[in-house]
Simulated assay, not measured.
Amino acid sequence: MPLQLNSRSVLALWLFPMQAPLMPISTEEEQWAGRLSARRSRQFRQSRGYVRDALADLWQVSALEIPLQAPPGKPPELANGWGYISFSHCQDALLVGWSPQRVGVDLERSDRPIAAELLARRYFCADDQAALCHLRGAALRDAVLEQWLSKEAAIKWQRGSLAADLIHWRCGVDSAFAVHEVLGHQVDVHRIHHNIWSMAVVSDLSAMSNSPMLCLV
């Protein structure tokens, strides 16, 4: 049974190196991993194993007791009463977020090369494009990456899809919240920078009384 971690202000974050040793996963997860390519299989094992490891420490149970349902390509879910989970990985790190309230996280290397102007023109709403129009070069790249992280985290919070929802999320360059212009969702956005990584954490408005704390593993 889950512990009574019921405070709406709780939001736990963990950052794991992707080169860390693999941790135990469930028999079903092993079967799913076996159907993936070698690279995707390792990513899958890494993410599910360390999600289980982090939550086992949080709940003080064994990793394989965590009621995680996270098949490839589907939003991860926990059983009722165990809170909400979100995770994201880039080439060398894994970010895991947990909260009693719905949460979405996204992670990228801060130096990831992107076609900033093209991405913004193709995928950002008109207001967010307008907020970027005075920026050039590295400043534009950094701002587009920040917005992209926030939008992806918001879509994970929503349990939506990039194809259907990316252009509808408005979050601005430095905004502390994001709005879905069609569905009316409004959420908190926390942006975090650590070492070579940039992160965004999205939660229900007022779900967090303080900025989330990042645990480095």
Results as ranks from 00 to 15, higher is better:
1 M>F: 10
3 L>E: 11
3 L>P: 06
6 N>Q: 12
6 N>M: 09
7 S>V: 12
7 S>T: 15
10 V>P: 00
10 V>E: 10
15 L>G: 02
16 F>D: 00
19 Q>M: 11
20 A>Q: 11
22 L>Q: 12
24 P>Q: 04
27 T>V: 12
27 T>I: 08
29 E>L: 00
31 Q>E: 13
31 Q>T: 11
32 W>M: 06
32 W>G: 01
34 G>K: 03
34 G>S: 05
34 G>T: 02
36 L>E: 06
36 L>P: 04
41 S>Y: 06
42 R>L: 11
43 Q>I: 09
44 F>T: 03
45 R>A: 09
46 Q>E: 04
48 R>D: 10
49 G>S: 11
52 R>Y: 04
54 A>Q: 03
54 A>P: 05
55 L>D: 03
55 L>G: 07
59 W>V: 02
60 Q>H: 14
62 S>D: 14
62 S>N: 14
62 S>Y: 05
63 A>D: 03
63 A>V: 00
64 L>S: 05
65 E>I: 08
65 E>L: 11
66 I>M: 02
66 I>G: 00
67 P>M: 03
67 P>N: 06
68 L>P: 00
69 Q>N: 14
69 Q>T: 13
70 A>R: 00
70 A>Q: 02
70 A>N: 01
70 A>L: 03
71 P>K: 01
75 P>N: 13
77 E>G: 09
77 E>C: 14
78 L>A: 08
78 L>N: 09
79 A>H: 11
79 A>K: 12
80 N>E: 13
80 N>Q: 11
83 G>H: 02
84 Y>M: 07
85 I>D: 01
86 S>D: 07
86 S>A: 11
86 S>N: 08
88 S>V: 04
90 C>K: 06
94 L>E: 05
95 L>K: 01
96 V>R: 03
97 G>A: 15
99 S>D: 07
99 S>C: 08
100 P>F: 10
102 R>Q: 12
104 G>V: 08
110 S>F: 05
112 R>I: 09
112 R>L: 09
114 I>Y: 08
114 I>M: 10
115 A>L: 12
116 A>N: 12
117 E>K: 14
119 L>D: 04
120 A>D: 07
122 R>G: 13
122 R>K: 15
123 Y>D: 06
126 A>P: 03
127 D>V: 10
128 D>E: 06
129 Q>E: 14
135 L>E: 04
137 G>T: 12
138 A>E: 13
138 A>N: 08
142 D>M: 11
148 W>I: 06
148 W>C: 03
149 L>H: 02
151 K>P: 00
152 E>R: 01
152 E>D: 06
156 K>T: 01
156 K>Q: 04
159 R>F: 01
161 S>E: 11
162 L>Y: 12
162 L>D: 11
163 A>F: 09
165 D>W: 02
173 V>P: 00
174 D>H: 14
175 S>D: 11
177 F>S: 09
179 V>R: 07
179 V>K: 09
181 E>Y: 02
182 V>M: 10
184 G>M: 08
186 Q>S: 13
187 V>L: 10
190 H>P: 01
191 R>H: 09
191 R>E: 08
193 H>R: 10
198 S>W: 00
198 S>Y: 04
198 S>G: 15
199 M>Y: 00
200 A>I: 03
201 V>F: 05
202 V>Y: 00
204 D>F: 02
205 L>F: 06
207 A>T: 11
207 A>W: 08
209 S>L: 10
210 N>S: 12
211 S>Q: 13
212 P>R: 02
213 M>C: 14
214 L>P: 00
214 L>Q: 03
214 L>G: 01
216 L>C: 15
217 V>L: 09
